[in-house]
Amino acid sequence: MSKEAEIRAAIEAAFDIQELEIINESARHAGHAGDDGSGESHFALRLRATELAALGRVARHRAVHRALGPELVASIHALSLDLG
């Protein structure tokens, strides 16, 4: 399973999603630090979910990281979060 699919599955299992967009930005970072050559090192996540609406910025980020789990988070070099 691709990392993008893993991210999607984890987020869908954890949240009542109103909007979800996952963008693999790895190609834009080819050859840079953190590029492991897999093509799955840099992601941007745009998420709107009921559970996040009442939380502050840091709490929203923590909730997403918790949903993804430490192993998946550690396997991604960069994860940009838009949780507005």
Score class of each variant (00 low, 15 high):
Arg46Asp: 12
Ala53Leu: 14
Glu6Gly: 13
Glu6Val: 13
Arg46Glu: 13
Ser80Gly: 07
Ala44Cys: 12
Phe15Ile: 09
Arg48Pro: 07
Ser2Trp: 09
His42Asn: 03
Ser80Arg: 09
Ile22Asp: 07
Ile76Met: 02
Ile17Arg: 04
Ser2His: 13
Leu52Ile: 06
Asp82Trp: 12
Gly34Asn: 04
Gly39Arg: 03
Asn24Ser: 06
Ser26His: 03
Ala33Arg: 13
His61Cys: 11
Ala14Gln: 08
Ala63Leu: 03
Gly84Val: 14
Leu68Gln: 05
Glu51Arg: 04
Glu51Asp: 07
Gly84Arg: 13
Ser75Lys: 06
Thr50Cys: 15
His42Met: 02
Gly84Thr: 15
Ala63Gln: 03
Arg48Tyr: 08
Ile76Ala: 00
Arg66Ile: 10
Ser26Lys: 02
Glu40Ala: 09
Ala33Trp: 10
Asp16His: 14
Ser80Asn: 05
Gln18Cys: 12
Arg48Trp: 08
Glu12Lys: 12
Arg62His: 06
His77Val: 00
Thr50Arg: 15
Ala27Gly: 09
Ile7Ser: 06
Pro70Thr: 13
Gly37Trp: 00
Ile22Lys: 04
Ser75Asn: 07
Ala44Leu: 12
Leu72Lys: 01
His77Lys: 00
Ile17Thr: 09
Asp82Cys: 11
Lys3His: 05
Leu47Trp: 05
Gln18Tyr: 12
Glu4His: 10
Ile11Arg: 06
Ser41Asn: 05
His32Phe: 11
Glu51Thr: 04
Ala13Pro: 07
Val64Ala: 02
Arg60Gln: 11
Glu4Asn: 12
Glu21Leu: 15
Gly56Met: 05
Leu20Arg: 09
Asp36Val: 02
Ala49Asn: 07
Ser38His: 03
Val58Ser: 11
Gly31Phe: 04
Gly56Leu: 04
His42Pro: 02
Ala9Asp: 13
Ala74Cys: 02
Asp16Met: 09
Phe43Ser: 06
Ala67Ser: 07
Glu25Trp: 01
Ala14Asp: 07
Phe15Ser: 09
Ala13Phe: 11
Asp36Arg: 09
Leu79Cys: 01
Phe43Asn: 06
Glu40Pro: 03
Arg62Pro: 05
His42Trp: 00
Glu21Pro: 12
Val64Arg: 01
Thr50Ile: 13
Ala14Gly: 10
Ile11Lys: 08
Arg8Pro: 09
